[in-house]
Amino acid sequence: MIPAQFAYRRATSVADAVAALADPDAKVIAGGHSLVPMMKLRLARPGTLIDIGGLPLRGIADGAEIVVGSLTSHADLAQAAAFAAAGLQAVAECAAAVGDVQVRNAGTIGGSVAHGDPASDAPAGLIAADARIRVAGAAGEREIAVDAFFQGPFWTALGEQELVSAIVFPKPAAGSASAYESIEDPASGYPLVGAAALVTVAGGRVTAVRIGVTGVSGTPFRATNAEAATLAGAPVADAARLDITGQDVFGDTRFDEEYRRHIAAVVIGRAVERAIARAQGGSQ
């Protein structure tokens, strides 16, 4: 399969790419690992591709916050030690769960977030970590809280003429740790459900928690009932069922809705358990 014809040029700067997006028929390409398959299938047919692959938006800056350039590959994220050191293990684990080696080498965090695929791994980690999506537009840069970013399947708060430039991860309080758990479709590797939990443990008790869930529903979401149960020391999987009940859950011939609702609660429980064990000094 070969994509339909399109015009191509390399962006020379972020501003240049933003300006090029004034053409409603133009799209940027980063790793191309969501866009090229869609173009082959004619699910996407941009008239012009603006290649941002050469822009200096790659790399991880570890300071007061961890700032990840949008072109950073899943492979580089998965290997970055900065996340585990900050208690943000889940972020690296989401990246490690993406596809296979070749896909992780090609795919970028910015592309994944901008694409808004409801079956992608990254949103769970971003939600648990309370990340901010930094975007560049004609009027300059702004940041969007992750809780306001994902709006529906392949639909985000990103404007038509905006570029994701970075993902910003605040560092959680001392005593925090996180984990990502998923059950993958054995054929595609995409998560049927993925859950990331970030907990802060003080004096033997969980004092703060955020849980992000992806894969089950059109929009990744926060499991607020499971969060409340975690804080109360109550069984998390039971509470997680309430979170899932309120969601419009995917179902198909291989994995029906009931099955997904069930495993979602199980996976949320596992993520919380592993995050707590880590925060308490377990090494897993």
Binding site: K40, D51, N105, A106, S188
Partner: peptide
């Protein structure tokens, strides 16, 4: 497969492995 699933088209680009059926030559 021509759909980035099978890896038969794997090549190294600057030393890292990629599925060349899912990379535009211009990239």
């Amino acid at each position: 497969c021509d759909t980035s699933q099978c890896g038969a088209c794997t090549v190294l680009i600057d030393g890292r492995s990629f599925k060349s059926c899912t990379v535009l030559a211009v990239q």
